[in-house]
Amino acid sequence: MSEQEVVASLRWNNNVSVVTITLICYEYLFLFEKEVKFVWKRQWSLMSCLYLVVRYLGLSLALLCGCWGGLLYISELVSYGLAVLMEWGFSVYFCFSEVILIWRLYALCNQSRLLLYVLVGLFLPIVALSIGMDIFLYSRRDAFSVKEVITPNAKYCGPSFNMGPMPAIYASIPVVCYDIFLVVFAAAILVNHLKERRESKMRPNTYVLMIVRYHVIYFVLNLTNQILLTVLWANIPTPAMSLAELFNDTAPFIFAPRLIISIWDTHANDKCVHVSTTFADCVCWTSPPQHEMSCA
C-alpha cells in the first residue's frame, strides 16, 4: 500500500469515526428524556431491562468503534483485544435484539407459552452458531488480526481479514432464515388481526400495526447488516469498507432503542387505561374486541 493510500485510508477512518460518535451522542441525548420517563421513573419489567441492554451496550460499542483505529492511537496488542471484544459485543447485541422481537410476538399472541418455547427453541441453535463462528472467525489470529500502519506523520491500526468471505456467508444464512421466519409470522398475525377486525367492522389496533411494521424494519436492517458484515471479509475499496462500517456501527444501535421508546411513547399518549401495565400483560397489544373502547 502506497503512502497516499495509507493517508486516504486514515482520513476515511477518522471521518467515519467522527460521524459515528456524533450520531450516537445525538441519539443518546435525543432519547434521554423519554428514557427517564419510561424506564427510570417506572417499575422495571423485562422489556425495560432489554431496552437498557441494547441502549447502553449499543452506546458502548458505537463509541468504542468510533475511537478504535485511527482517531485515537491504541497499540497493536490492545487494538486486537478491543477488536475481538467488539465483534463478540456485536453478537451479544444481536441476541438481545432478537429476544426483543420474540417477546413482542409472545405479547401479541396472548402470551402463548407454546409459541414462546418454539421461538426460543429455534433461537438457541442460532446463539450456539453465533458463538462458534465468533470463535472461528474472530478469536484466532490466523483468521482475524490487527495490522499497525505507520506513516511519517501518523500511525494507526486497522483490521486484517485473513480468510475469504465464505465462512461469514455460511454463518449468516441461518440468522437471515430465522429473521424471515419471525417477520413472516408477524405478518401472519397482522393478516389474522385485520381479518377479525374487518368481520367485526372495527379499525385495526394501532399497536399491532406498529409492532409488525417494526419487525419488518428490523428484518431489513439486520439483513443489510449481515450482508455488510460479510462484505467486510472481502477485499473491497477503502471508501466502501468505511461506509459499511459506518452503517454497522450506528444503525443497529440507533434503531433498536428508538423502536422500543416509540411504542412506549405512543402507548403513553393514547387513551389506553393500562399505561402502567408491563409490556407483555397489556391488553392493548392483543386487542380483543371487548377492549376496544378502553384501549384503542
Rank of each mutant, 00 (worst) to 15 (best):
residue 1 M to R: 11
residue 2 S to C: 04
residue 3 E to C: 01
residue 3 E to T: 06
residue 4 Q to Y: 07
residue 6 V to W: 00
residue 6 V to E: 12
residue 7 V to N: 09
residue 8 A to V: 13
residue 9 S to R: 10
residue 12 W to F: 10
residue 15 N to S: 09
residue 23 L to G: 06
residue 24 I to A: 03
residue 29 L to V: 08
residue 30 F to N: 11
residue 33 E to N: 13
residue 34 K to T: 00
residue 43 Q to G: 13
residue 52 L to P: 00
residue 57 L to G: 02
residue 58 G to P: 06
residue 61 L to V: 03
residue 62 A to Y: 06
residue 63 L to I: 15
residue 64 L to D: 02
residue 64 L to I: 13
residue 65 C to G: 03
residue 73 Y to E: 02
residue 73 Y to I: 00
residue 74 I to D: 05
residue 78 V to Y: 02
residue 82 L to C: 04
residue 92 V to I: 15
residue 102 I to C: 09
residue 105 L to G: 12
residue 106 Y to L: 09
residue 110 N to W: 11
residue 111 Q to P: 13
residue 111 Q to F: 05
residue 116 L to F: 14
residue 117 Y to L: 13
residue 120 V to L: 15
residue 123 F to A: 02
residue 125 P to V: 04
residue 131 I to D: 01
residue 131 I to Y: 07
residue 138 Y to P: 01
residue 141 R to P: 04
residue 141 R to D: 07
residue 142 D to M: 04
residue 144 F to S: 01
residue 148 E to Q: 04
residue 150 I to Y: 03
residue 151 T to P: 10
residue 153 N to I: 02
residue 153 N to E: 12
residue 154 A to P: 00
residue 156 Y to Q: 09
residue 158 G to R: 15
residue 168 A to E: 07
residue 169 I to Y: 14
residue 171 A to N: 12
residue 172 S to L: 03
residue 176 V to E: 14
residue 179 D to G: 11
residue 180 I to Y: 05
residue 184 V to Q: 03
residue 196 E to M: 07
residue 199 E to N: 13
residue 201 K to F: 01
residue 201 K to M: 05
residue 204 P to H: 04
residue 206 T to M: 13
residue 207 Y to D: 13
residue 212 V to M: 05
residue 212 V to R: 06
residue 219 F to V: 09
residue 226 Q to I: 03
residue 229 L to M: 10
residue 230 T to G: 09
residue 231 V to P: 01
residue 234 A to L: 01
residue 236 I to V: 09
residue 239 P to E: 07
residue 245 E to R: 14
residue 245 E to Q: 12
residue 245 E to N: 10
residue 246 L to E: 07
residue 248 N to V: 14
residue 250 T to H: 04
residue 251 A to I: 15
residue 253 F to M: 14
residue 255 F to C: 11
residue 255 F to Q: 08
residue 255 F to I: 14
residue 256 A to S: 07
residue 268 A to P: 15
residue 268 A to K: 11
residue 269 N to M: 05
residue 271 K to H: 15
residue 280 A to R: 14
residue 284 C to A: 15
residue 286 T to H: 08
residue 287 S to F: 05
residue 287 S to P: 00
